[in-house]
Nucleic acid binder design. Structure first.
Lengths: 252, 252
DNA sequence: AAGTGGTCTAGACCACTTT
DNA sequence: AAGTGGTCTAGACCACTTT
């Protein structure tokens, strides 16, 4: 690795170094997944203090390009915007059709007696729920994390299927007529560290958080889900007038 | 200011100090807009190196809580989530009604011969556009920045009004029948520094970016706008089934 | 000129992982 | 035991703003 000459410039050293790193990654000198040289080596290469190299690395870490691991090394994440094309829907039926072909990856399953995050006036609560946390992927690239709370009796009525397949289509198959309300609310937030790890995105990337609530004729919540989408996987098209590419606003 | 004792803990000093700062701001010891003590003073108070205090301040700066200004001091921004309630709409008429009561703040106005960011297949381009960059506020709190490109002849037909009032209602008043298509696409991104400054949010907060295109009967783009909303000002409600609080997905 | 934040150094010591 | 990133120090010098 040749020594890069950087000196006597009004731009701070650590910014120049960060730029050099960005360039190396862009040009493929450092490839995705690679372990970059150690702090000591880089400090020697650039002839700066170790802490100055770290400052540059910290910047790229915040940007999601590098991921230092204590004791192991610093790795290139370099996700160059896969720009996942995501189908979006606006009715429960469309949502069901969309999910029919999805194979979720189960992370956690547990039994709860309360819904932890439900707001007021959303519906009455059942006595027990089965909790599942899952990841949905597209081309091996995770695009959302779902935390599902499904009313326990419903879950038990077909537990094998509910465990391995998307919930919405199953719910529509067996309980369509008992569903009276279904709606979801989307907000925009910064990703929490845990979800960032699961979605393999930078620690504080923007995400869309969707709360989905389904109630039965008695006004009881039979399904509650919190979905966290990668911000770059969400694109919402709204037709205000005329015949756009889609007839109505749609959200996955 | 009493010396805060912090020592012999597995938690890094700068994180402890950052927590202390958060606490002081939350409790009102340091109020919004206040200038906090200098790095020297804080370093002496906490009996740590100046650079360690700076590390804590950097953390809170990234969170949007503190704003250091070189040569002046470090100030508390402390926006405690005003949670702006934003009305949302899904037709051009509703959008017009919503904007009728808005008084935008004009930042820039200029004349262009090209639309800089329009995608392919969105429509034919006119020969000239008038560009305006504006801020919309609610209770004195800015919630979005709009960059508008309005076809020059339309602008000139009523330039005083277009200069000072929202464009959509004026467009509906005078050109309703000539509008054939209007649609918008929302994506989720991190805020650029310039917009962050205008919206008074942290440098890389999550935002919703909306592209809005209006074309006339000839398929010519007469209006193009890019709107950047504060992420925490956007909330999208979608009714999948039943009679929710709103009948259809709506977006401001 | 004085005050304040921003950058940088050289080195020490620690926490964690791999050999 | 060796290697690697994380924290911290004490001090120097700089850039920018206010007095």
């Amino acid at each position: 690795m040749s020594v890069t000459q950087i000196n006597s410039s009004p731009i701070p050293l650590y910014l120049q170094i960060a730029d050099t790193f960005r360039d190396r990654i862009r040009r493929g000198v450092w490839k995705s997944g690679d372990c970059i040289p150690t702090l000591e080596k880089l400090a020697a290469d650039f002839q700066v203090a170790r802490v100055t190299v770290r400052q540059a690395i910290q910047l790229l870490t915040a940007e999601g390009t590098l991921a230092p691991q204590r004791g192991r090394g610093t790795f290139v994440t370099a996700r160059q915007r896969p720009l996942l094309p995501i189908k979006m829907v606006s009715t429960l039926e469309e949502l069901g059709d969309l999910y029919r072909s999805t194979v979720p990856e189960l992370l956690t399953i547990d039994t709860y007696h309360r819904l932890p995050t439900i707001g007021p006036g959303q519906g009455k609560l059942a006595t027990g729920y089965t909790y599942m946390k899952r990841i949905h992927s597209h081309d091996g690239e995770p695009y959302c994390v779902i935390s599902i709370y499904l009313e326990s009796n419903i879950f038990e009525s077909n537990s094998d299927a509910f465990r391995t397949r998307p919930v919405i289509p199953l719910l529509l198959d067996d309980y369509r007529d008992s569903i009276s309300e279904a709606h979801q609310v989307m907000t925009i937030e910064l990703c929490d560290p845990e979800s960032a790890r699961l979605l393999r995105i930078a620690p504080s990337s923007p995400v869309a958080r969707v709360h989905r609530v389904i109630t039965n004729a008695d006004g009881m919540v039979v399904y509650f889900a919190e979905v966290i989408y990668r911000g770059d996987a969400v694109c919402l098209e709204i037709n205000l007038k005329g015949s756009g590419p889609v007839g109505a606003p749609k959200l996955l």
